[in-house]
């Protein structure tokens, strides 16, 4: 990438949601490639039968032109596309130092309850995935979190005990990354 390109390109967050079907990723990314865009970090996953995409897109185009680039694919596949201009940089990863898995009988507010006490104990969430397992009448809520414990692991351990008393099982595993 040369200097003049660096000045004029900027980052957008493109969010795409639609009913899952084969070819969504391939056709969207091809349209962006043909429109001269670069992709950065992305997260793409199936949630409840929908396919969801969040991707960093770098382009010298305005967001309306970006919308136009993916418009034909979005129309053909009935996808909702949302684009935000963002301040972003690559190579800005924070290494997680703890992984926490939690589960319990599903109930209203369980995610707010869990993430609230974790935030209080100094956890910065870097990645969270959750699923609803079990059956329709006995749903089980499951969460897996990678995070960075600002105030150390001990503070987190004590709040996990509090969650346990409220019927939420939690396992905390420190992460030590091997470098070699």
């Amino acid at each position: 990438m040369n200097q003049s390109e660096q000045r004029t390109k900027s980052w957008y967050m493109m969010t795409v949601v639609g009913k899952d079907r084969p070819g969504i990723v391939a056709r969207l990314t091809q349209a962006l490639f043909e429109g001269g865009c670069n992709l950065g970090e992305t997260s793409m996953t199936r949630l409840g039968g929908n396919f969801t995409i969040m991707m960093m897109v770098e382009s010298d185009a305005e967001s309306t032109r970006l919308q136009g680039l993916v418009g034909p694919v979005a129309d053909a596949l009935a996808l909702h596309v949302h684009i935000d201009s963002i301040q972003a940089r690559l190579h800005e990863h924070t290494e997680p130092n703890v992984q926490i898995s939690l589960y319990g009988a599903d109930r209203a507010g369980i995610v707010a309850e869990v993430t609230g006490v974790l935030a209080e104990a100094g956890l910065n969430i870097l990645d969270l995935n959750s699923e609803v397992a079990g059956t329709g009448d006995k749903p089980v809520y499951i969460m897996m979190i990678d995070g960075y414990a600002e105030g150390g692991i001990e503070a987190l351990k004590s709040v996990l005990e509090r969650l346990k008393a409220r019927g939420i099982e939690a396992t905390l595993t420190p992460i030590a990354t091997l470098v070699g």
Binding site: H91, H93, E95, P96, I175, A176, T177, L178, V179, G180
Partner: peptide, 13 residues
């Protein structure tokens, strides 16, 4: 399963 990084693969674990 454990987390790994590599001197020869910067900025990813």
């Amino acid at each position: 399963v454990g987390r790994e990084g590599c001197l020869s693969v910067p900025d990813f674990t």
